[in-house]
């Protein structure tokens, strides 16, 4: 797995598709899920309280008119009890069954998927949320938390039974490394070694640094580059005055070395190798 230079974090779960493509999902931990849950509780019980206020007002208003007080009150309280039921048993299953995430989960940037990385369907969403009743025993999700800590996918009991997990929704990819500016000069190209090979960790670190370069003040970029430029330029026997530019040139050559149609910076007079 060439591009995953760094060993994956232990909160990553690899899922292989039938096409033999491996996706890495970051599973969401208890803290982020608790945040999402708190938001959902605020939404659910906010609605219940709002309806309760309306019912109370209607009952008080009805009392002035006399007559059908108990009818409207009965209807209102009946409705409230149904809403309470829905908040406890339907809200989570419905959102997750239809969209894969409750509003709280969407806000926290997490989503429920099966352990094969596929979207959850209504039966799985129903099962994992029915078992919420077991997970929150004896108090405050103690059982669920214990189950999550004993699972490498942070699965509570409901997740285990329904074969689901909660993952962090991948963000849009980060920016690319900007091309070197000004373009490599002939003397720089001539001085560069033909064969620049970084090991994957070095390459990933350089890439991260060069992507951030535009956002860094020049002095800070220099300071950071100077930390690593010494050993690297000694290894390749190449350095220009500016340490940032040294790293950028070497990275550019490592990326393009040996490829057809490579940019000029990657070639040196004669064909490489």
């Amino acid at each position: 797995m060439g591009t995953h230079a760094l060993p994956p974090l232990d909160t990553d779960v690899a899922v292989e598709t039938p096409e033999h493509i491996v996706f890495r999902h970051r599973v969401a931990g208890p803290a982020r899920r608790a945040l999402a849950h708190a938001l959902d509780l605020v939404i659910c019980y906010g609605v219940v309280i709002a309806v309760a206020l309306v019912v109370a007002l209607a009952v008080v208003g009805g009392a002035g008119l006399g007559g059908a007080i108990s009818d409207s009150a009965g209807l209102g309280i009946g409705l409230l009890l149904v809403l309470l039921f829905a908040a406890q048993w339907i809200y989570f299953a419905a959102w997750e069954g239809l969209l894969g995430a409750t509003p709280g989960k969407m806000a926290a940037g997490i989503r429920v998927v099966t352990t094969d990385g596929r979207p959850v369907g209504p039966p799985q969403a129903a099962l994992r949320n029915l078992l919420r009743a077991a997970d929150l025993m004896p108090v405050g999700y103690v059982v669920g938390l214990a189950s999550m800590l004993l699972s490498h996918r942070f699965q509570r009991l409901g997740d285990r039974a329904a074969a689901t997990m909660v993952i962090i929704v991948p963000r849009a990819p980060r920016g690319f490394v900007a091309p070197i500016w000004p373009p490599p000069q002939p003397d720089e190209i001539a001085a560069m070694p033909a064969d620049v090979l970084f090991d994957p960790e070095e390459r990933a670190a350089l890439e991260l640094f060069l992507r951030r370069r535009a956002a860094l003040p020049a002095s800070r970029a220099n300071e950071l580059a100077r930390l690593v430029v010494g050993p690297i330029s000694r290894r390749f026997a190449f350095a220009v005055a500016d340490p940032v530019r040294t790293l950028a040139l070497l990275y550019d050559r490592a990326q393009h070395a040996g490829r057809d149609e490579a940019p000029r910076s990657a070639k040196r007079g004669a064909r490489w190798r």
Binding site: A68, G74, L75, I77, V82, W89, A134, M137
Partner: peptide
Amino acid sequence: RGGEGALMAGFYVNNNVGIALRCFATGI
């Protein structure tokens, strides 16, 4: 009366269905 029926129906939904679902869930 109509209101009382609605209240009781709401109560039964919340209470009885809740009990049955909890009865299932704790089976784990």
